[in-house]
Every structure is written in C-alpha cells, then in structure tokens.
Design a binder for these strands. Structure first.
Lengths: 207, 207, 207, 207
DNA sequence: GATGAATGAGACTTCATTCAT
DNA sequence: GATGAATGAAGTCTCATTCAT
C-alpha cells in the first residue's frame, strides 16, 4: 500500500491484515512490526489510525468473528420449520465451525488483558462468541412453545450442553499441536449428540 | 538461598514456586525473574535444572493439574453404586472445579508452542484435561452394561456433552475480566443438566 | 481551515498559535502536530511557511518576548524624573515580571541549539532579554551625569546586580515544580534591594 | 566495562559516565543508548541499576553538582577573617564558576519534569544551587553581628543581588552559542560589584 | 497554497539467557 | 551447584518531515 491509497482506506487495510494474521497464527506473539510488514506499510503507521496495538487487535478480532459468521451464515432461527433434529444438527455444525475458527484467536486474548478490555467495549458481534448459546436457547424455547419439545424441557441446560459439546470437541485439539483446520468431526458423532439430547440416556428411553 | 523445606531439591522448589504463581496469576506475563525472586534464588539457577523457561513452565503446569486433581479427589468410578443421577452430579461438580482451576493456566499454553510441546511430552496426568471425559465415558458404558442406562445410549456423546457443559460454563467467564474464583454455579443448573441428559428434551419424554 | 481572524496570513496565525502554546506550556514536549491541531490547520502546512520546526519556534519565542514587553510597557528611561529609588523599584518590578514570563520559555531554547541559532539571527527584541540590563545601565549613567548618583558609581555593576537579583528570585522557583504564576514577590523585598544598592552595606553607611 | 567488573561498580560507572556527558553536552538529547555506548556497556544494563532513565540522570546531575563543589572548595564561611571585600570577591568567584559549571546542566531539567522530580527527592547537595545564596546571607549576617557591616544592612537582599549578579553574568552567555568555558569575567568587574554592594551608588556615598 | 496520510529513524524499556566467580 | 550482573535482540510507540492530490 503505497502513498495515495487504494480502494480501501489504510485503516481498513490494517484491520484486514491483522485479521488475516490472527486467523493464521492466532494472537500469540503478533507484533506491531509483523503487522506493518505484512501490510507493506511503515512501522509507525498504525498509530495514525489506532490508539495503540491493543485497539487494532481488538478490532481485528472483532472483524474476524464477523467474517467467520458471515461465511457460516446464520444458524436456523425459525422454530417450527424442518425437524428439531435437523435444526439441532445445523446448530452443532455451526458451533463446531465457529469454534474451530475463533477459539484459537481468542486464546491469545487471555494473555492480553488490554485487548480483552477493548474487545469487550466493542458491540457484541451478533451471535458471536457467547451469543450462539443464547440463540440456541431461544430457539429451543420457541420449539417448546410449539409443542415440539417436552413441556418441561430446559432450554438453557440443553443449549449449554450442546454448545459445550462443541467446545469439548474443539478445545482438546487445540493442544495437540496439529493444525485445527485439518480436523473433521467423525461421522455419526453429530447424530449421536442430537439423539442423546433429544431422547436422553435414561433406562426408560424410547427405543 | 533460603528455602522453606530443606529436604526438597532446588529443582522441586522451582517447580512448586512456578506452579503457585501460575495458579495465582496465570501464565500471562510470568517472567523468569519473577519466578526466581519468588523462589528466593538467583536468576540464572533455573538453567542448572531445566533446559529453558518453557521446560519449567510445562512441568509446573503438569504439577498444577495433579495438585488440583489431588485436591478434588477422584470422580466416581465405580458403576452401580448410588444413583446414576447422583454420580453425574458428582462428575459435573468435579468438571466445573477442575476447569475453573486449570483452564486459565492452560490458556497461556496455547500461546507458547514450546511449552505446549514439552507439556505433551510429559506423562498424561491421570484424569486431567482430556482424561476426565474418557473417564466419564467409561463410567457411562459400565452403567449401560449394568442396565442402568438405555441399551442404545451413547456413552461417548453423553460424556462429550456433559464435560462440554462444564467448559461452556467456565470459558465465557474467563473473558469477562472478573476473577473466576468469585463465581459459583447457579442453584439448580447442575440438576437441570443431569435431568436433560438423562431424560432428553424430546416431546415423548417421561414427565 | 478555520481561523479566527480572516485577515492575518496563515504564517502569522501559526506564529501566534505557537506563541500562545509556549506561553502556556513552555517549550517542553511541544510538537509540530500539537501546534497544527491547536491552529486548526493541516500538519504539514508549517513547511510552506517555515524552513522547519525550529524556525517557527524561534519566531514564536521572539513574538512572545515582544508581547510580554508590550504588555509590561517600557521601564522608566528618562533620568531626572521622580526619585532614583522609585525608578529602581520600577525597574525591578519590570525585570521580575519579564523574567517570570520569559525565562520558562527560554529554558527550552537552551536544549535546542537550532532554535537558539535561529533566534539569535532575529533582530534583538528591543529591551528584551539582555536588553533590559543595558537599558538600566544607560539610565543609571544618565542619573550619575545629573548628579543624582555618586560620581564614582559604576552603572554596569549596579545594573548587573539589580537585573541579576531578578534572575535569582525567579530561577530557583522554576525548579520547584510549582507554577511560577502562583508566586509573588514578598513585601519589602524590592524596597530592601533598592536600599541596599543605593546605600551599600558597608559599616560607614548612612543611617 | 566487561563482565567481572572493575574497581568501581557498574552502577557508579554509569553515574560517572552520565555525569561526564551532562558536563560536556548538558542534559539535552542525552539518550540511554548514548550513555550505554559511552560507558561501553550493553543498552539495557541501565535498568539493572536504576528504575529508569530519569533516575540515572537525576543521580548524575546530583553527582555533577557535588563534583563541581568539591573542585571549587568551600566558599569563605568564617566571618571576621580577612576583609569583607576579599570574602565577597571569593563568593562571587565561587558563584560564577559554580553557575558556569552547573547552569547548562540544569537547563535541561526544565524540559524533563520527571528528572526534576527525582532530583528534588535527593538530598540537597550541600551548598549547591539554591544553597549558595543562603550561605552568603548567613555569612553577611555574621559579619553584621561583628560590626563589620552596617547595623541595618539587609543580608538577604545583598545575598540575592550578589548571587543574582553571578546568574546575570552567566545566563546571557548560555544563549550565545559559544562555549561557556571559553569565557572569563572581565577584569575589574568583580571588584566593581563588591564596591557597589559595599558602598552603594547613592550620591552621599563615601569616596 | 493547503492537505494529512505515510514515512522511518530512533527513543525507552523488557526479559530470556549466559558465564566468570 | 549457585550466583546475579551483564547481555542484546526485540518490543511498543513518537514525531519531524515529505509529497501526491
């Protein structure tokens, strides 16, 4: 990006570059210089557009989450359509892909409290991060109102377990050293999760 | 050099000190000098006992996990005793406490590939981290064999959801900025989780 | 570009703005950007009118001295009028106010050789800075010619001591950290200075 | 100063180096790197011994003042010895040399409030800076008690004028660009100052 | 002439690691 | 083995100055 600018402002260019680096390497050891070099701009240019490194990282992380969500599309939000099982499968697929894409980026946040603070000051990316669980709980509540779930089913508990399962499937693999993108959910696992949450594991369960 | 216990080697003393600091402050901004000062030893003594900082951190993290597990005691591993529901409650309580104690420490791991590598070279702390899920799955399988669960219940899926729920309850709170220790599980939530996984949320569910 | 007065050139506007900032904050940490922002003009406009930052600062400092002198009015320059004592009091009051106003600004000068060089290239602000001492010496010489001072009184030495006393009263207070504007000359001090220089401190002094 | 140390600690070595640089160039634009390079040590070594740059500069400035005073020796402090005139000449000579040596160094202080703050926290170098005026006032008071000065002579006013004259002789020359060390007090000036303050300039002055 | 984004050298500071004692 | 002063690369950030528009 040479003097004179291109089609997008340098500010956006920097956010996009940082976002890409975060997606690729996470927030770990991401230096101002690395971002500037990758963006092909001078070292100090960052400070013409952002208060400090943390402000840029917070925005880049935010953009990352939105980018991922845009790519994934919205999870099913209209109760009553299709089958509950199919909708749950869609939620789980969505949650898995979302966590695969953003958990590594968020991990770095925990070591950078200043980025965390600035990130929390930004508007919550729609269904991003903690939003997905609430989304699912709302969906389940609506299905219960329609009579497609047991009258005493607990939407919050179920949503917690389903989204939690997505975490549980992703988190351990972040510690293995192998790139997360190379991993796919085993066949039948999603189906088994849906069956489990719908029918329960108790002895009197319908066959 | 002044050490509390005179009979433990300096090596153990350093690991114990680093473990305590990790437990108190997490891995963020933990410097070699801080560890040495806290241990009341010289800065460079570390390199007489460990290859580098990462090796020490990996061992300290390992020790931290074992310490927490020793404190929590073993989760119920004998199927057929008590009720399934009570045993599941115990697993969930165990999982929550475990994750509250070790997730913050592990977060730092993700940003330090060298620590991660060295940690994975160590013997897997018994039920630690990924171990708990496998433990629970084995327990559920045994209960199914005893006929206390539905014959077609999927122990793996159920274990994933239950341990996942523990993650889901803890993880978001790590990003809020408030200290994790100040948080407690809302009343009824554990019960709701157990009920959900045992009975399912489907329409035909028993009342 | 929004400027207060429409009829002064941008050059004058910049000098006036820099002068005001120097008067308010001194030269410490005064950046080109701060001046431009305060003047409500673009960052780089400075270089259309001045060779560099130092040239602007030299002119602004020059203007500052002239502004202060205009505000203080001329010290008594006509010998033979009033009493010598009263005239000396006026000189001292003038010198104190002048030094209070300009010494902080000049302090920054000493650290910026380029500003210093450019400042010295400018016409000496009439009685400013070093000028006041010469003024006083000339006045004292005239009074001596009129017979209102001892025939062997040394105007140069007396002027040096009187203006020096003004320095001595102001300088130490610049290092105390408290704002100079909050300070006032203790009652009786000016009178004591005049008495001392007029009568001397020697043992045979008239009572 | 290579590893292993020499006869003086590195801490002292750094202070001495900074002191020399301050004496040579003043505090203006004195960088951490310049000090480290001049001291022949690594860039960051400073922070093993001082909280920050300002702490070192404050100590170096302090040392500079003490060094100068040690070199100059104490001004006459015993009233009643020699003649008053000779003692005053000694005070003036002392003040001139002191100010020539330390005023340039102090000028930089005004642009570095943090150094100023730290400097003021240090014990006041005996008769240094503001101390000399008080010293002189005390001496003059003692002489007055002995009857060697007029009974109504004002020691404070006289001291202010005498030390002020030293300032006035030195300050303007700091702005000329020529090195201060190359300047000497014109013959007769010191004598004229002493005569003026002792006899006064009033018309009834003794011949 | 005016703009202001971009430049890039250089400032201060941190910290894992080494090594003479 | 233990010490801890010294190392020096690397990090974040500032700011006078330039130049295409």
């Amino acid at each position: 990006m040479l003097r004179g600018g291109g089609d997008q402002s340098l500010r956006e260019h920097l956010i996009a570059t940082a976002e890409r680096l975060i997606a690729e390497r996470g927030t770990a050891g991401l230096t101002v210089r690395a971002i500037a070099r990758e963006a092909q701009v001078a070292d100090g240019v960052l400070y013409n557009h952002f208060a400090d490194k943390e402000a840029l990282l917070a925005l880049a992380l935010h953009a990352h989450v939105r980018t991922v969500e845009r790519r994934l599309g919205a999870p099913p939000q209209v109760a009553g359509e299709g089958t509950v099982e199919a909708n749950l499968r869609a939620y789980i697929a969505h949650g898995l892909e979302l966590h695969i894409a953003i958990l590594p980026a968020f991990a770095g946040l925990l070591l950078q409290p200043k980025v965390l603070t600035r990130f929390n000051e930004l508007p919550n990316p729609a269904a991003g991060g903690r939003g997905l669980r609430a989304d699912l709980a709302a969906y389940l509540l609506a299905e219960r109102e329609l009579g497609r779930l047991a009258p005493d089913a607990d939407p919050e508990a179920a949503a917690t377990m389903i989204i939690g399962a997505c975490h549980e499937l992703v988190l351990p693999r972040m510690f293995s050293g192998t790139p997360l993108t190379a991993w796919h959910v085993p066949d039948g696992l999603v189906e088994a999760l849906v069956t489990t949450v719908v029918h329960g594991i108790g002895p009197a369960r319908r066959s």
